[in-house]
Design a protein around this nucleic acid. Structure first.
Lengths: 369, 369
DNA sequence: CTGAAAGCGCTTACAG
DNA sequence: CTGAAAGCGCTTACAG
């Protein structure tokens, strides 16, 4: 193989290549092509030549070189648990919001997956090695102590942390109120025996939802019955199992009028378990979820749920993050805008009807847009 | 503020810092900490000191600097349309497979979202600027011409491309066989009048499924009746409209025994249209889908469908990609392992029963785990 | 076994 | 208005 024909991998054009092609130095090219500020210093005619040369060579500034010089990768990290046999629509919606806002601000988004927060939180620091400028934690389950070990150079924003994390901007929702309003709504439809399929104990979200459930019952003068509170985790499978288990243990006893589930995923699992034994929703039993993920609209019947503005929260996480990053180099930049606690909304759909005992003609429910 | 107290942003430790702390040069530190090959050259005692210093300083090699020197970012790009109802579960499963394999190979995954392939495919080149080492396209819908414009420096792998893309490794499934087997299965249940609600014309997936449908009928000596093939796109809404339209146009005529839909979304739309006119699935008419998305298990009855090994395909995409990247610098590396066409599986659930005319006692269908 | 040098491709002062 | 220089933090030959 001769030297001139050597089959070395093609390389992308660099600033020097562009400069050479345009008969100027690399930094003149830099000023025109990348430098926002200094670009005006270059003569209009030189400018033209440089831009032309860049187009011809398909010049694209090398991200790694840029990052090294600027100490900014223009990339946001996103750490989450996204697996579990069941698909995780919660994640998808938050994710959409983050990607959307990141793209709007011309940031890339790099996704890091954990199998389990407790076990894998220790891996977070290793990802803060210059490949991202900040890290958004989605539904992290970690102790405040662990959070203190996060590298100081990297800003962190958490959405739905299980506890308020130190050194981290926490973004959350008013889950207790969401649960409260859902249960009040069920009561208003005539339900009194309301089963709650709960989330993992110790998770802030699960506890807030449980608190809302209890408070709503109490305020409606319905006694909280602990046999109507069954544990699950946030997965569809656990919801299915929890519902199956309850049905088995309470065979022959009266059904609950309604089931309020800690999440849509759990609610869908419940609906599967109910379908297995031939129970129709909402004719025989009503089911409600929480989150208003995409899946809530794909079930038949569609799921009554509590909407969290997941997308907007993802958006906000990015904006807060960008703000933190800016402040690293420029302390005069003002702090993130409040509120970081987002309100929630009840979304009535077809999975909740009147209880069988008090069946009556009800207007057909329709999806709220 | 005195100079010594200047509040400049903390910086992560560099190799020089580590070298200084250990009393050696930066490249000695580099050899020990990052260089796999040269590391043996360093005296064991020096080694120790360096490792200790690195630990104390929490040294982490800067990814951007490394990428610049190595021309490898250790990051894979992933381009997909992830919004819009139907596609999401599909995407999530592929995504999981990709993230899983990428993490196993210590690659980051950066996600790029498109609103629409035709419009946004032109943005792909701008992302190939050194921030990723290769790009995986998920369900791209682009012309072969557009694919030719993709930068030559970056390897591309596509999962479920709408047409075989040039300069791209294409990973697909045997959709024709999936459709074939589904229709054979319907025939085996006693169905002969089988309606096919098809997908967008020109999409490879839709055409393959249609071909499988026709081939199965022919092989069962059932004449293909073009009035039993109706067009839709891949959305639930189009399925609902297609089914409604057919029912209206063919009022008074005999119903099909079964409906084979091009996707689960379309099948769900069909089920809604059938429910509207009081037809029960599967008692009056059977319905089958394709994809085995989350939604397939949430309908009542659960949907008989065809499963594609999306997760495994995501895995394979990463492995093929890594192989391509290696071959860029080392041409002696062997080519990707076949096969790149994945088999599919029939998933029988409750939405398919016997046709009304040949109704007989059938064992109760249950969900396949 | 260890260090000084050059380079990856960019940017940011600093000279002319 | 434009260019030569130094540096971002690493790696890879090349000397000692």
């Amino acid at each position: 193989m001769t030297s001139s024909k050597k089959h070395k991998p093609f390389r992308a054009a660099t600033l020097s290549d562009v400069g050479r092609a345009a008969g100027v130095s690399a930094m003149a090219a830099s000023a025109v092509l990348n430098g926002a500020r200094t670009s005006s210093r270059i003569a209009a005619e030189t400018r033209e030549r440089i831009i032309e040369a860049a187009a011809k060579l398909q010049y694209r500034p090398n991200a790694a070189a840029r990052a090294l010089a600027n100490r900014r990768m223009q990339t946001l990290g996103l750490a989450a648990v996204i697996e579990g046999g069941e698909l995780n629509p919660y994640f998808l919606e938050v994710f959409n919001g983050i990607l959307e806002a990141a793209a709007r601000h011309e940031q890339s988004t790099t996704v890091f997956t954990l199998h389990d927060w407790r076990r894998d939180a220790s891996r977070l620091p290793s990802w803060c090695d210059g490949r991202i400028d900040g890290m958004i934690l989605v539904a992290p389950t970690m102790t405040a102590e662990t959070a203190k070990l996060l590298p100081i150079h990297t800003p962190f924003v958490a959405i739905h942390a299980n506890v308020a994390l130190p050194n981290v901007v926490n973004i959350e929702t008013d889950e207790e109120r969401g649960a409260y309003e859902m249960v009040r709504y069920l009561v208003a439809q005539g339900h009194r025996r309301i089963l709650h399929v709960s989330g993992d104990e110790g998770l802030l979200g699960a506890e807030r939802r449980l608190r809302g459930y209890k408070r709503a019952l109490t305020s409606a003068h319905i006694k909280v019955d602990s046999s109507l509170i069954i544990p699950a985790s946030f997965s569809g499978e656990s919801g299915r199992n929890a519902m199956r288990g309850w049905l088995k243990r309470h065979a022959g006893e009266p059904l609950p009028h309604a089931v309020f589930c800690v999440s849509d995923g759990v609610a869908i699992g419940c609906m599967e378990a109910l379908a297995e034994v031939g129970l129709r929703v909402p004719d025989d039993i009503s089911v409600a979820g929480f989150d208003d993920t995409l899946a809530a609209r794909t079930t038949v019947p569609q799921l009554t749920t509590v909407r969290q503005p997941l997308r907007a929260m993802g958006n906000r996480a990015v904006e807060v993050m960008l703000n933190c990053i800016q402040r690293q180099s420029d302390q005069s930049v003002p702090s993130p805008l409040t509120p970081l606690v987002f309100p929630v909304d009840l979304v009535p759909r077809a999975s909740v009807g009147a209880p069988p005992a008090v069946k009556r003609i009800v207007p057909s429910h329709r999806a709220v847009p």
